[in-house]
Nucleic acid binder design. Structure first.
Lengths: 215, 215
DNA sequence: AAATCACATACCGACGGTCGGTATTATAAG
DNA sequence: CTTATAATACCGACCGTCGGTATGTGATTT
């Protein structure tokens, strides 16, 4: 195959097939040759023309997923018509109602089997999700009076830590019943500092997500 | 070098040098040859006689560290003279006062640069530390009346998640001042459910640990 | 027409792991 | 206490695979 007039299509193809393989077999067990085999005639030269290493392909794949998720969060954060508290609730609901969440489940299933996905997931939480999305929304909530705390940053971090790590069936193997108890306890914790964030609909949806995750 | 009469010494040597290299360069960047070079004449055959793969060496290294840490926790849990609440506090203090904690800091410094150490750390929390140590101690506390909760398992998990992940400077880059605020917020959270676990001495020690960790 | 781009292809060194062999030690029968 | 036998501890040459590179080539842009 000769030169492609639309090289960004080649990039897209590489990332798409690489992601599929990373999810299926994990990073280490996916070889460059595996990716080449699914490129429909393209060769190793094509890959190393667009990416300088296998590692860089992985990062690009993660960035693609990350940006899709963050686009959804952008919309919530920048919505002018809602209070900080409402936005915070919407962000907590994102786990089960963002349009990308099937892809997230697919990646999630790989997380415990792939140290790189695993680390990427948790790193992203503290470097991106909290400072650029959750904390700003909490600060809005303080400003508009919809919620009160002296520790906006810490609240943001704890909330996301508990929801995205502890109550993440991809990370801590969890049955739907255990998930229910986790959320009940989390609700109790939050009530203890005067926050009513979780409602019964959210609880049921998380339990359902957990059930779906376990097949 | 000829055959060793005490093969367990060879195993110990391999694990010792492998750990040093894993901490220094990380798992992926440590080659079998690197390990061989520090074995004083032993060859690749020796390594693959005692271990079936590089991966297995890593697991053995992690188990060694893990068992050293758990030995300390064993002593706390099985102490007959203390209440559950006191034991729980002692476990929280283990971060800065267990005898192995310098080694833990050394490994900790590698954690964010090595996906395998990273995953191992977090996995161990939920598979070992919580079910075999923290949760039993909390249940003791309930039985002896020194603490109250309807969610012993969830409390154990949340506590350890927040202390060992969120408030772990090896995982979330943290300044001593940030550490202080984290613990103050955590204390507030725990007070909200009627638990007084943290005292000012613990707080200062954790801040100091954080400072030491950052050099 | 020149330069650049988008690939193809041949090739490289390093790596994890295997395997046949050898020297040492444990076992136990004579 | 020997001595034959088996099991263990280790050696090191070798292998396939992998990530990555150097160079070539034809299409496209300027």
């Amino acid at each position: 195959m000769a030169r492609n007039k639309y090289p960004e299509e080649t990039v897209r193809l590489i990332l798409e097939q690489a992601l599929a393989l990373f999810i299926q077999k994990g990073y280490d067990d996916t070889s460059i040759q595996d990716i080449i085999d699914r490129l429909g005639g393209l060769s190793k030269g094509a890959i190393y023309h667009h990416f300088k290493s296998k590692e860089e392909i992985f990062e690009a794949v993660c960035n693609t997923i990350g940006q899709q998720n963050m686009a959804y969060f952008d919309g919530i954060r920048d919505d002018q018509s809602k209070s900080g508290l409402e936005k915070l609730k919407m962000m907590l609901r994102a786990g089960y109602q963002n349009p990308n969440c099937n892809a997230v489940i697919a990646v999630g299933r790989r997380i415990m089997n792939d140290p790189r996905f695993f680390q990427n997931e948790i790193t992203e939480i503290y470097k991106l999700v909290v400072p650029f999305y959750v904390q700003p929304v909490i600060q809005q909530g303080i400003a508009d009076g919809s919620l009160k705390t002296e520790y906006p940053k810490e609240l943001a971090e704890v909330l996301i830590t508990l929801i995205n790590i502890w109550a993440n069936p991809a990370i801590t193997k969890t049955t739907p019943e255990e998930m229910r108890r986790k959320l009940l306890f989390l609700d109790k914790l939050l009530h203890g500092i005067g926050l009513a964030l979780l409602d019964s609909e959210m609880l049921e949806q998380y339990v359902e997500l957990c059930r779906r995750y376990n097949e």
